[in-house]
């Protein structure tokens, strides 16, 4: 084993980790903005609202992320003239944009499903009590349903964040130099295959358990009134 190779390339790997974290955070934030309305649409009784939400969730949870990524990155090429007319081709040509878009749509679907489950799990008695107190629909949602649903969804959302962070490794396949991408590039120069991959794996492991730790801490805080 050549430990010096690992040591020499550690700064580059950390740079890659930075891009990994950046893409994770960006996709998570936009994904959350998509997920909340989709979860509410999914719970609606109006077929014009719940059917598109159901289709979106089913498609993005039922197909591999890799294919979603290729569909956006390579597939957009088929519509190049149309996208150019709309002035969007400049965006779809960028691997970064396509990577974030695919990850965002993917995590949006998973998060919507988590959030839907959490809203459903809010006890009916809580809502009835709020109604009896004379609260309106919006007030009930804001004061009763939302806070409870967030507490219920939090542990599952933590899992989703971990999965998404690990899933960002796929963007290396469409040429982005995230942690996995950088590792591949270093290996093609140094031939230190397992040394670099093991170091990469350790870095992912560290990020994963940092996220797990953070979510556990916040979970404790969210539930501090129950202790």
């Amino acid at each position: 084993m050549e430990f010096s190779v690992v040591w020499d390339n550690l700064p580059k790997l950390l740079q890659g980790a930075q891009l990994t974290l950046e893409i994770t955070l960006l996709s998570l934030m936009i994904g959350l903005v998509i997920a909340v309305p989709v979860a509410l649409m999914r719970r609606s009784k109006n077929p014009l609202l719940w059917m598109p939400a159901y289709g979106y969730i089913l498609y993005f949870r039922g197909t591999p992320l890799l294919i979603q990524l290729f569909l956006i990155y390579y597939g957009s090429g088929q519509f190049r003239p149309e996208l150019s007319d709309l002035g969007l081709w400049g965006l779809f040509r960028e691997a970064y944009f396509c990577g974030v878009l695919a990850l965002t749509l993917n995590t949006g679907a998973y998060t919507a499903e988590i959030f839907r489950g959490a809203i459903q799990a809010v006890p009916a008695g809580d809502v009835e009590a709020a109604k009896a107190c004379g609260m309106g629909r919006i007030l009930i949602f804001r004061r009763i349903i939302l806070p409870k649903a967030i507490r219920l969804a939090w542990p599952m959302y933590g899992n989703e964040v971990v999965f998404l962070m690990q899933a960002t490794s796929l963007v290396s396949v469409i040429t982005l130099l995230d942690l996995t991408g950088i590792a591949g590039r270093i290996i093609s120069k140094t031939f230190a295959v397992y040394e670099i991959y093991i170091m990469t794996a350790l870095l992912y492991l560290a990020i994963t358990y940092a996220i797990v730790f953070l979510f556990k801490r916040i979970e404790k805080r969210l539930n501090r009134h129950l202790a």
């Binding site: 690990q166 396949v173 996995t180 990469t200 794996a201 492991l205 994963t208």
Partner: peptide, 16 residues
């Protein structure tokens, strides 16, 4: 559970 599938796959195929 702490390592991406892609890294483990590459580790098995190229590394081992």
């Amino acid at each position: 559970r702490g390592i991406p599938e892609l890294i483990l796959l590459l580790l098995v195929y190229f590394g081992i």
